[in-house]
Amino acid sequence: MNLTLKVWRQVNPTVKGKMVTYHVTDVSPDMSFLEMLDVLNEQLILDNDDPIAFDHDCREGICGSCGLMINGIAHGPQQTTTCQLHMRSFSDGDVIDIEPWRSGGFPVVKDLVVDRSSFDRIIAVGGYISAPTGTAPEAHSVPVPKQDSDAAFDAATCIDCGACVAACPNGSSMLFTAAKVAHLGLMPQGQPERDTRVLKMVAQQDAENFGGCTNIGECSAVCPKGISMETISRLNHDLLGALRAGAVPAS
């Protein structure tokens, strides 16, 4: 099939970008979306043009590197990662708009690549547990209720792709932060830092120029891992609980 792509081209963070139109021919419906972009890039290289920069790594939907705004929906029309989206989701003659994630916390590096180190800094302030190193302890020594372990696992499926931020009308990273807070806060091993973790991670998220949550639910609807809005409620509950318990985030 033949497609018309309108792609956001931006040379570097300081220069203003714009949408540029490209035509791709002979696209196989079995190609992944990224393979289709690879084909376009090969064509651009042959034409001595600058290939389109985009992030990708595993192409198996598990690493969280890829992520594009496709026709106004984060990761495109299927609720999956961009690499797992196939061209059979489109039809011949389609015009596809491709843009980078847009948020104050995700400045554009080049074209479709954004700097997601803000996520690393949110993780760095609280996304850990204090556990003794050395030999792994006997797994059965700390019982975890099945319900809690299931909920923690659901939250732990977050791959940090940033689609939640991209889709949010407020540019908020709440679903991401909530997934980390719920993932660690539900486990017995995560209890010592539970109160300070939520306070620090939310403070960092606010400082990174992400917006506040207004419970609209766009994030959960595009999340490739289907992390639910319940996770955000859990974060709110934990944060208010931490304040009631008198926890103060050490700066």
């Binding site: 309108k6 705004m69 106004g72 708009d97 847009r102 948020s103 407020n170 540019g171 992400f210 917006g211």
Partner: peptide
């Protein structure tokens, strides 16, 4: 949190 708006 959204200094540049989406085109689509």
């Amino acid at each position: 949190a959204r200094p540049v708006a989406y085109v689509t």
